[in-house]
Amino acid sequence: MKFLLFSLLFFGIFSVALAQKNKLNYHIAPQISLLNGDQSVSGQLGLIGVWEKNKWGFGLGAAIDYYKVRTAPFFFTSHYYLNQSKQLAIYASLGLNMAWPLENQFTNNLNRGGWGSIQHKGFTNGAYADLGIRYSLANTKLKGLSIALGYSMKTTKENFTETIFMPVIGGMPNSIIVPRTLEYKFNRIAITIGYRL
């Protein structure tokens, strides 16, 4: 957690400094999302930093995503304004979904039969993507609230090692250790409120 907070802080300071140096139109925006998924609703807290030129914007973002299994997406983001007032934009993000599960989010009761055992090995990182449309309620300096509606997807993989026995009835046990994985793909509708600083 400390690592994540420090990363976000460092990212914010670094991106502001970079924008000033390159004379680009730069802003950062903390945002909070409501994630409506498959029989589950959860949330996401994030921060994006964007450099803008004309109607295009490109930047970086990080978030904490609590949908079903806690993860920390780190992503590149971009947007394109659909009108001159720059109130309406489409956006897309793509990046890494860093696994960061809570202790009670491990699958610990996989069904199985016969002899053998299953050892939980943890999660591995996956992918993160979202896209949608954003409407700015900002003032003329484009500061202030925005609301967005989009589709958000994240993946992660849960890994196990499983000892299974070759199907012999007699003789010495003849076991092998094989990987067993659960690869999740979570799809959500995201309603996001951001505040452009």
């Binding site: 498959d38 994985t181 690869e183």
Partner: peptide, 10 residues
């Protein structure tokens, strides 16, 4: 918004 899981095993 339907979540999916792919289970790989032997």
């Amino acid at each position: 918004v339907k979540d999916a899981v792919s289970e790989s095993y032997t």
